[in-house]
Structures are given as C-alpha cells and as structure tokens.
C-alpha cells in the first residue's frame, strides 16, 4: 500500500506519502495564494524524496475541507485527476479531522480554521480521532458558548482569542496526519467519504432585480 495524501484547504500546501506503516516522505509550505503553483512541484518533490514515481501509488487521500474554495479545489481536482489517470481510488478526509488527529489530545477540544470574512470553519471533538459535530461555518462570537472552556487548535482558533482563549498549535493541517488517519481507518475497514468538497456556503451571487435605468430623471 502506498497512499499519496494532499490537502489545500488551509493556507498550507501539504503532501505526504504513507506506505501503510508510516509516513515515508512529506512536504508542507504555507502560502495561501499559491496553491495552484506549489502543489504539483511538491508532489514531485515528495515522490523523488522517497525514490518513487507516481505510478507506484495505490490510493489517493485528499482533504475535502471545509476551506476557502479556490485553494480547496486545487487539491480536489489534482486528487481526482490522479485517481482517474492511475486507476486508483481517491479517498476524502475532512480537513478538520486531519488537524484533530495531529493533536494527540484525548479529551474534548475544538478545531477551527480560518473561513475568512470574519468566520471560522469548526467542529467539536471528543478526542483526536472522534468528531462530535458536523463541520460548520460561523462567526466566532456566535459559537462562544458552544466552545467555552475547551482547548482549541487551528488558525481559526489562533485568530480569535476572545472566543478561543486556549488556542494552540497545530495551526494548519499536515498531509502526514491526513495520510496516517486515512491509513488507520482503511486498515480498520472504515469507508472514507467521497472526495467531494465541503463548501458549507452557497456561492455568492446576487440575482439582479432589474436592469439599471439609464434615462436621466
């Protein structure tokens, strides 16, 4: 088994290879505006670092978000296309679950990433492997009661200390965590979600009521 994991749902462009036992190579760069440029060279770099080529990969793991859409789609489109070209399965993993897995916390906590527009993508966890709530997008102040007293991780938590006073690392997801989580679940026979994006918001689009009258009054 050789899993290629990638995630572009947070400012990190992160790639990892997992052989079923452990992560054998990985790369993470933080640059929220250059997902499109950085991802393929990162895949190439990680494969080369492990002395492997893409056709050795037996499955793709991709972070399905939630995350800012433009970046999120880079990872999903890349994963979909790899899966199609290689004829291997593409597994989705919730990006927040990847962040949670990297914490090793065994009590309840919150994961929150930056959703921009003064909102966070977030979910509550019982421990690093168990999510309690569906991922949601909200203004930090609106969820203050639901997350009160809980430790929190992720850039969204670090960004809003009023709501998340005990926020700490990790800030962004790592594909290494995503790959390890996926490998663990696949080994346990758990079915992973389809690689479909978690947008959580409808597209911004105004229906013009009418055209603007041009005749001067």
């Amino acid at each position: 088994m050789l899993l290629l994991a990638l995630d572009t749902a947070t400012p990190a462009v992160t790639v990892a290879l997992h052989d079923g036992e452990a992560v054998i190579a990985s790369s993470s760069q933080v640059d929220a505006r250059r997902h499109g440029e950085l991802l393929l060279p990162a895949v190439d770099h990680v494969l080369a670092g492990a002395g492997l080529t893409l056709d050795a990969v037996t499955g793709i793991v991709v972070g399905i978000g939630p995350g800012p859409y433009t970046g999120l789609r880079v990872g999903l489109m890349t994963a979909d296309t790899f899966g199609f070209a290689l004829g291997v399965p593409v597994h989705g993993v919730c990006t927040l679950d990847g962040l949670a897995y990297a914490t090793d916390l065994d009590g309840p906590f919150v994961v929150a990433t930056d959703a921009r527009r003064k909102e966070v993508y977030w979910a509550r966890y019982a421990d690093s492997r168990t999510r309690l709530t569906d991922p949601a997008v909200d203004r930090p102040a609106d969820i203050a009661e639901q997350v009160a007293g809980l430790p929190a991780v992720g850039a969204g938590a670090l960004l809003y200390p009023d709501t998340f006073p005990s926020a700490h690392e990790p800030e962004h997801v790592s594909a290494a965590a995503l790959a390890s989580l996926a490998a663990e679940r696949l080994a346990a026979g758990v079915e992973l979600p389809e690689p479909r994006p978690l947008y959580l918001r409808r597209p911004d689009a105004q229906v013009p009521k009418n055209y603007k009258v041009v005749t001067p009054k």
Binding site: G36, L39, L40, V43, D44, L54, D55, Y69, T70, R73, V74, M77, T78, A79, D80, T81, F82, F84, A85, L86
Partner: peptide
C-alpha cells in the same frame, strides 16, 4: 476567470504529470 482557470490548470497538470 481566475478561480475557473485554476480548476482546468490543476486538472491538466495532474493529468500530464500522471501520464
């Protein structure tokens, strides 16, 4: 459109690389 272009570019790069 920037976001629209990026979907095609991502697919093309992955496809060319894989093949």
């Amino acid at each position: 459109l920037a976001g629209a272009l990026l979907v095609g570019v991502s697919a093309a790069k992955a496809y060319a690389y894989a093949l």
